[in-house]
Structure formats: C-alpha cells, structure tokens
Write a protein that binds this DNA or RNA. Sequence first.
DNA 1: CCTTTTTCATAATGGCCATTACTAAACCAC
DNA 2: GTGGTTTAGTAATGGCCATTATGAAAAAGG
Lengths: 202, 202
Amino acid sequence: MGRHREFDVEKALDAALCVFWRKGYEGASYADLTEAAGVERPALYSAFGNKEALFRQALARYDERYLGYIPEALQLPTAWEVAAHILYNAADLNTRYPDRTGCFGINGALAGSDEAEPVRQALIDFRAAAQAQLRERFERAKAEGDLPETAKSDALAAFVMAVTHGMAVQAKAGFSRAMLEAVAEQALSTWPTGSSTSSGTS
Amino acid sequence: MGRHREFDVEKALDAALCVFWRKGYEGASYADLTEAAGVERPALYSAFGNKEALFRQALARYDERYLGYIPEALQLPTAWEVAAHILYNAADLNTRYPDRTGCFGINGALAGSDEAEPVRQALIDFRAAAQAQLRERFERAKAEGDLPETAKSDALAAFVMAVTHGMAVQAKAGFSRAMLEAVAEQALSTWPTGSSTSSGTS
DNA sequence: CCTTTTTCATAATGGCCATTACTAAACCAC
DNA sequence: GTGGTTTAGTAATGGCCATTATGAAAAAGG
C-alpha cells in the first residue's frame, strides 16, 4: 500500500549520470541534479540515498550502458584487435555527446577535497578492474602466440589504459573525434606482434 | 613607508601550489591554503588577489619550477629524444612527490562546477601551448629528415601529450614510477623514424 | 615623538552546500 | 469510505565556502 512513485527512477539516474559526467562528483550540486532529473531533492534521497550512493549507482549504470565495448573487445581474437577496439570506441564515446565530453570515470573525481576520497578511490578501483581484465587478456594472447613471449602484459595494459585516459582529458578539452582517432592510430602503430601481424581499424 | 610584510610571498605561493596540485582548484579551500602557507586569509588576498588569481600564479610558478624539462626536450637533436625526454621526465615528476602525485595541470581542473570554467579553460590553453610547441618541433624534424615526410606532426604531438596525461591520471591513482616508465617505453617503442633510428632512454 | 601608511589577525558576512523536518496529497487494504 | 502508509514539495537547518570589514600593531618620515 501507500502512494506510488511518480517519476521514473531509471530516468532520474540517467539524468544524474549525465550531470556527474559533465561536472564530476564534487562539481555537481543537488541544484544541478534535481533540475536535470526533474525531481525534487527528497525524492532523490529516498530513491538513491545520499550523494555518494547516487554517484556509485550512476557509475554502475555508466558501466552497463556505455562501456559494453570493453567486454566486447576482450572477446576479439587477437590482442591487437582488443586494443584497437578499446581505443577507437573510447575515442568515439569521449566525443559522442557534446554536452558531456570525456569519460565519466575520469571526470568524476581525479583530485578534490578530502571528503571526496571514497569516491575517488571507487573510480580508481573501477579503472584498476578494467586494466586487470586487459592484462589477463594479454597474458592469454602470449600463451596463444599472439603476443611475443617477451611482451610485458601489465605494461601493455597500462599503456592502453593510459592512452584512453589521455584521450579522455583531451576530449574534455574539446579535441575532435578525428584527433582522438589519430592518437589511437599512433598508439596502435607499434604494437608488438607474435607470429602474425594485423592491420585495419575497429 | 608602512609596515613590512612578515611572510615570504614566494614560499606562500609554493605552499599554495602544493595544495592546488594535490586537491585541484575547487577541492582546495582557503582553510587548506592558509594552513599550508602559514599565513592568514587576508594576507593571501592582499598578496595574490582572489582564489582564481592565486591559482593562475601557482600555475605560472609550476611551469617555471617543474616543467623546465619541456624547453629542454625541445632542444634535443632528434624527435625521438624530444619525446623520450618528455615522457620519462613526466613519469618522474608525476611520482616524485608522494604528497602530490600526478600533474598540476591535470589535477587542477578537469571537470567541475560552472564557476570554475575560467580556470579549466586556462589549463586547457596551457596544455595546448605545450602541444603546439611540440607539433612545431616535429614539423622541424620532418624538414630535417628526422621524421618521415608521411608523419603527421599534430597527431604525434597529441599522442605524446595523451600519454603524459594518461600517466598523470595513473600517477594520481598511485601507480609506481616504474610502471609509468614502462608505459613511456611502450609509447616510444614504435616511433616513426626517418633515415636514422634511435635507441636508449632519456 | 607623532603622523601616516602598510600589514596583521580576528571575526563577521552572505551565499551555497548536502541533508532533512514537516505537511499535504495519493494510494491500498479493509 | 476510512485508516494506515508511502510519496511529493516546501522550506528549514547547520556547516563550510570565498571574501572582506574592522581595528591593533609595526614601520618610516618629519
């Protein structure tokens, strides 16, 4: 029993996600969030908890709604294709929405006040998880002869992630999608190969 | 005539620089700044103006005190050496001070509230200036035959900058200097060459 | 020594922040 | 239809924010 909720919780979360994406965790105020969601403050609190809880749910939603290309990439047959898929899709995602350029996980909280420490750490862990998956995929590639035995899979994974992070910074600075693709292309141009070499784009 | 200033303005600026480096523009409060500088609020205002003016002076000081390796790099004989010098020195600077990892120019303001827009733009312009210098240096390298005619100097400059930005994000996340150096090494491993090839590290 | 000028430190100001009482309205069970 | 329960919206609360008024202290000129 009781009164029904009058707003769509998922739409409100999507709206909050966009605000956090654009302004980051600390840069987003409840005035911004309620305006974007079209919902009053207490409704957001009752539906999501406090600001930190709302941000964490927005992060989870970002993962499932926008980062599907990462598990996609991991299933591609060669390490080169994995890296290319990630880099080109990152270039696309970082420039696809002009009102929220860059990456949610980078814009969210890089530096900030001490109160934002838990959120910052959550984003660090989130990126670390992706990087670990990538490293494991590259280790598999070594076992399959797709990468040379001398390749350092952790360094390669860190490198691919670094380039995506750098592209996110550049996208937030207004770089065009074409420019980011050129960065991705350069990053891929010296990819180590095992027995077979690859070419083409994702 | 009049009373003498009792604190060292340069030391206060250095202290503010460290706070901004660690917490970014919006994450740093005057409580943080005055504590670090050992100076009361009105003294900071009278010496530097408001928070934005203080930040801009901190940025200028960061440039002259910590980024000397960039003009240094630009004078090296080959494009490869230029890139290597920048990447390895960035890896060093981003991890040199455990209390302020990453890069002032990235931590300072990536995303934030609308009030921080001018500061964000100032940092974007700052990075763009460095990237333009790098691009010009690479164009010279093409003229000198140090880079192939087919090389795209703007893409190469953007790539080198992207890797430094990515390393800054990773350093802020706690990555070790060795890991960042491995990223730098991977970034340099496929550098295009003209007639001569290079090797070694900076 | 006294006046003028500058700096110092305390403490105030107004605004925005996240969070939440509180009241009225809407719904379900009975 | 009525009682119990959940939501909606207004408006309050306490805290921190950048900024500055105020007055004491200190230095230099006359």
